[in-house]
Amino acid sequence: MIRSTSIALVCALSAWQAQPAFAYIKFGVPAGGRTVTLKWSQTPRYFVTTDTVPGVSAADFQGAVARAFATWEAVPTSTIAYQLAGTTSARPTEDDGSSVLGFLDRPDLDRVLAATDFVIDVTTGALIESDIFFNSAFQWSTAGEASRFDLQSIALHEIGHFSGLGHSALGETELREGGGRRVIAAQAVMFPIAYAAGSTEGRTLKADDIAGITDIYPTSDVNATLGSISGRVTKDGQPVLGAHVVAFDPSDGSMVGGFTLNNQGSFSIGSLSPGPHIVRVEPLDDADTDSFFSATARVELNFRVMFVDRVIVVPRGGDSGSVAIAVIGK
């Protein structure tokens, strides 16, 4: 689910259990008494509806969606691929075994631009179906028109969910009068709040998105060529849940984020380029925490932003070794 610019929304996926995993959050689903990573085991086939909205023809819609799928497919370190199965008259929220993308008129969801849902085999955790709807209560464009949301950008975000990715926290926002948040800047397509209408900046995957999709669908050489940073965040000696940990690579300026996801305060950021990195830790305060974690999770927000005071070296094909980070209350 992606939020419109000004408004805070509930992410339908946030109630799902977060998987202790690399980078971003990838979805974990309970199945057979354990938590398994939500991912496709075969090439997912998707249908598109032929419904139209003002400014977006059926061909425009199919073209924008196809470009968004192709953008994820083009990640060289990931094997993910998708297949267009054709057009359909089915609605994108029907649990019919077919993955459908299309418009849906949901004026009641006045803060939801689009959303992705899943049908999962609860015994095996296998992903059976995933639908994406785009809320036709908003104004859409495939040509970057001002005051209209860019369909390709929003599709790129939702297809990230469709593929098993959760939200990234690599973005800065400010509160708006009357509620909601405005995006100042972001460095992940999977940031939960969209750019303002008219922007097409969300059409390009960033390092964090690439690390995420690589982690779920790695090519065979990834384990030997990329590396990871792992560690633990504590405050007053106690583990911190929900700290946003960012690995910055000074060789190319890229950033990949991760979270402390368990009761030990552990984090692991994977699919990183080998070499020296700077690690920065911040509280999860640029979006509602339920965009990332279950509403009942006790996410720690009361600590200062800080850098780790040593260079963390990512070995090729290995892990940095545990990095101990002690944060300080505000």
């Binding site: 100042i184 800047a185 190319d252």
Partner: peptide, 21 residues
């Protein structure tokens, strides 16, 4: 030196922090 940049909706860089090596 290298900045840790994010991207604004207009496509311009927003510097989260700077670094020099």
């Amino acid at each position: 030196s290298r900045n840790a940049n994010e991207t604004t909706g207009a496509g311009s860089p927003f510097t989260l922090f700077s670094s020099s090596t």
